[in-house]
Amino acid sequence: MSLLEIRNLTTAFGTESGQVTAIEDISFGIEPGEILGIVGESGSGKSVTALTVMGLLPRPPAKILSGSVMFDGQDLTKLSERQLQKIRGPGIAMIFQEPMTSLNPVFRIGEQIMETIRAHERLSPRALRDRAVQLLAKVGIPSPERRMDDYPHQLSGGQRQRVMIAIALACNPRLLIADEPTTALDVTIQAQILDLLMDLRDELGMAIMIITHNMGVVAETADRVLVMYAGRIVEQSPVERLFDAPLHPYTRGLLDCVPSLEHDRPRLVAIPGSLPEPARRPSGCRFRPRCAHAAPACAETLPILAERAPAHAAACIRLPEIAAAMAEPA
């Protein structure tokens, strides 16, 4: 049975120009111990998906219009704030892009870790402190005993993210949601943090939902991938298959427009235009105005996510034509 099972989830925000949907009809599951990558550009709805799962969106202006988020036999969308607090921590924990804004600048980091443990468990002060030191050691903070008394500003960006991960691990969550965990970090530090996340998965068996705009981060970490565009899932696939045989034109575009570290390309293949604003989305397929393969029929119906190969689904009505066009010698 899936650890987390999301069905037909639609979240909207009330704005001056009326209600706009941030995510629409999202369905997916995560298995225990699995790393699921959710990839998309800004405005694709990937963070709103995570925040809806965590129950962290202020309602209003956010509103869950339909769907369910099943975790441990409970529908999280139906729980009260008090019930959700019991799930956050031991059930699902989350880390964010900017660790400086997620940590409280006026409390020592040891205190912030202990606070989280205290919220869910009764321990003696001694045991509590030991546990916090162990957590700092586990996430690779050197001389953790001394670091307990540091304030967030005394740490580097990479170390702050490690502290955030320590706080997230404080209650042994079964699912860790990491929202752009390395976007603000330099590349050598990014490699350290991704290594840490994968080691923790192997060691603790927790599932990880990693949200990113970086295809390289997905290639490095994920077992399975969802690609989101303008609030909808457009493709879903095991990771190797997504990179070997992407189906949706948007996924292909994302893979093609990134320059290579190993060989030269005379020119990058850019996707024309930009992501539509939520209130100005086109009819039919959301990607249609930017798609080289668009046909009149694409404007008429919203393509549904349908399985094209085992565990590999894409939402595009033009796949047979695109496959034929690709097979033709140039």
């Binding site: 050598t188 990014q190 994968m198 290639a219 994920a222 990179f243």
Partner: peptide
């Protein structure tokens, strides 16, 4: 070596072989 590879194939082996720098 720290740049994520563009394709998942062989990533476990690459991870093991990667030259890493510690710290900041």
């Amino acid at each position: 070596a720290a740049v994520p590879a563009p394709h998942p194939a062989g990533r476990a082996a690459r991870r093991a072989a990667r030259l890493r720098v510690a710290g900041d």
